[in-house]
């Protein structure tokens, strides 16, 4: 435990000093919220809706930092350490891959939590956003989305040969998911055909689950997205540890 917290302290400091994640995982969600806030204010999601458009979008705003950390930050840091031979130096110490990945994983959980802790009070104060549904269910589905997305990133980072490879894979995952899963572009404004296609992204499932919990909508299939994300988490985290490459 002492090792974990010491590593976490240093790695977190380095990560913040690097500023990338501060911008993409903390500032960007705030910017998106502010833009949506100014455009839609307290308008209802659709005529006669019991919740506002902004309330409907909160889940998506929360996943921006999850995306940035899991599909960009985490894989790039780990692959970069491999390329710079920092992992080689760690290899001749008693550290385990689980500890190393666990520390990096925790850093991005913290970013996502900070981002949420900023976005919610802002939305509540300026645009009267509240949680019509269940906060506990929302938190649960947020955690599931977070953990499953980060485990995808761990797998990419754990086994990509070098930073460039990780970066290509990260971009292939990050941009389509960020733009089309409903994280930036609201799912509701997409044409129906497009909605059907992007429903295949695991992140889309996460956002829909979070949204249902947030708005208190009745969903017939909570277990399908939950199971999909659970399986993704186990498979990816397992692969990241099992096939971890030091060099």
């Amino acid at each position: 435990m002492r090792t974990f917290f010491s590593l976490l302290k240093t790695e977190l400091k380095l990560n913040i000093r690097n500023m990338n994640m501060v911008i993409f995982a903390v500032i960007m969600p705030v910017v998106v919220l502010v833009i949506l806030g100014f455009i839609y204010q307290t308008k209802p999601a659709f005529p006669g809706a019991e919740y506002t458009f902004l309330e409907q979008s909160m889940s998506a705003v929360c996943t921006i930092s999850i995306c940035a950390g899991g599909l960009m930050g985490l894989p790039l840091v780990v692959a970069g350490y491999r390329e710079r031979k920092i992992l080689k130096r760690f290899r001749v110490t008693p550290i385990s891959p689980v500890m190393l990945l666990g520390v990096e994983f925790t850093i991005y959980v913290l970013y996502a939590a900070v981002s949420m802790a900023l976005v919610f009070p802002m939305a509540a104060v300026f645009w009267g956003v509240r949680i019509p549904g269940s906060p506990a269910a929302f938190l649960g589905s947020w955690l599931l989305t977070l953990v499953s997305t980060l485990s995808i990133g761990m797998m990419v980072g754990g086994i990509a040969k070098n930073e460039k490879m990780a970066s290509v894979i990260a971009c292939l995952l990050y941009f389509p998911m960020l733009i089309f899963s409903g994280a930036t572009l609201p799912f509701e404004v997409m044409p129906e055909m497009m909605q059907k296609i992007v429903a295949l992204f695991p992140l889309t499932q996460g956002i829909q689950l979070m949204k249902a919990a947030f708005l208190g909508m009745h969903t017939e299939s909570v277990w399908v997205p939950a199971a999909v994300m659970g399986i993704v988490t186990i498979l990816c985290a397992g692969a990241a540890v099992k096939f971890f490459k030091w060099e």
Binding site: L14, R17, N18, Y81, R84, K85, I86, K88, R89, V92
Partner: peptide, 11 residues
């Protein structure tokens, strides 16, 4: 162990 080309995190 001290390797010939020791590397470290950039910052």
């Amino acid at each position: 162990v001290q390797f010939q080309e020791g590397d470290y995190q950039p910052e």
